[in-house]
Amino acid sequence: MLIRILTIAGQEMRIGLRNRWILLAAVILALFSLSLALLGSAPAGTLGVDRMTVTVASLSSLSVYLVPLIALLLAFDAVAGEIDRGTLQLIFSCPISRGEFLFGKALGHFAVIVLALGGGYGVTAVLLLATGGGSQAALIDFARLVATSALLGLAFLALGYVLSAAARHTSTAAALSIGIWLLMVVLYDLALLGVLVSETSGFFAARILPFAIIANPADAFRLFNLNALGASDLVGGMAGIAEALPYPPAVALLSIGIFIVLALALAVVLVRRITP
């Protein structure tokens, strides 16, 4: 079982390297994070916070947009692409279970994301350390950012597999993925803010908003990271609500975990129902 999962995972990593996918994602992450680190260092002095901490706070906001996009772009092809190429028939005619197939894909893509994050953000971390901009505590912040970004990536990979298995055509799956990204990463926040601003009774803000935030892995990720940095006042916006939450911020992390498990389970169910 393990051999078959690792075989699928290895194949995905090989394709990721061969297509320069990992390289491209790492370069994009490096470019954005470097520019944030270099440009963002200007105001840091006046705030009296570690330069690296400010950078990590900015990078959390960057990750919320980029990591789900990278994950969805990796995942949308996972099932639909194999159907289109006819290779799914071949793979499923081998003695491998549908679950093993999907876990293999997830493992391979997860490794691709970890490599891209490590490479892309690593460059920035090394640069900040070399220029004396980081302390040991800031380094831990940085490691936490990379780890939670990978977790966020896994959540959106699982979501991508659900879309890919449900759509069964590459082009439909691609369109759905972009739609879901827009919905969950951009519009979701706007909608929450809109309701929050227009509402007067305070019921939504107190009872629904905290749970609406952790229901979306992207928001849960931002909440956890900014809270862990103690930097919500640095960034402002939605992050400011962290103090008024009815649960500890670690619950946000747990929520991402639950999201991953549910989405992967749904994807396995959908893949089992496919006639290749």
Partner: peptide
């Protein structure tokens, strides 16, 4: 089994 019109991944 060899399916009809199978296309292996071009990059491999």
């Amino acid at each position: 089994y060899l399916p009809e019109a199978v296309a292996f991944h071009n990059a491999l």
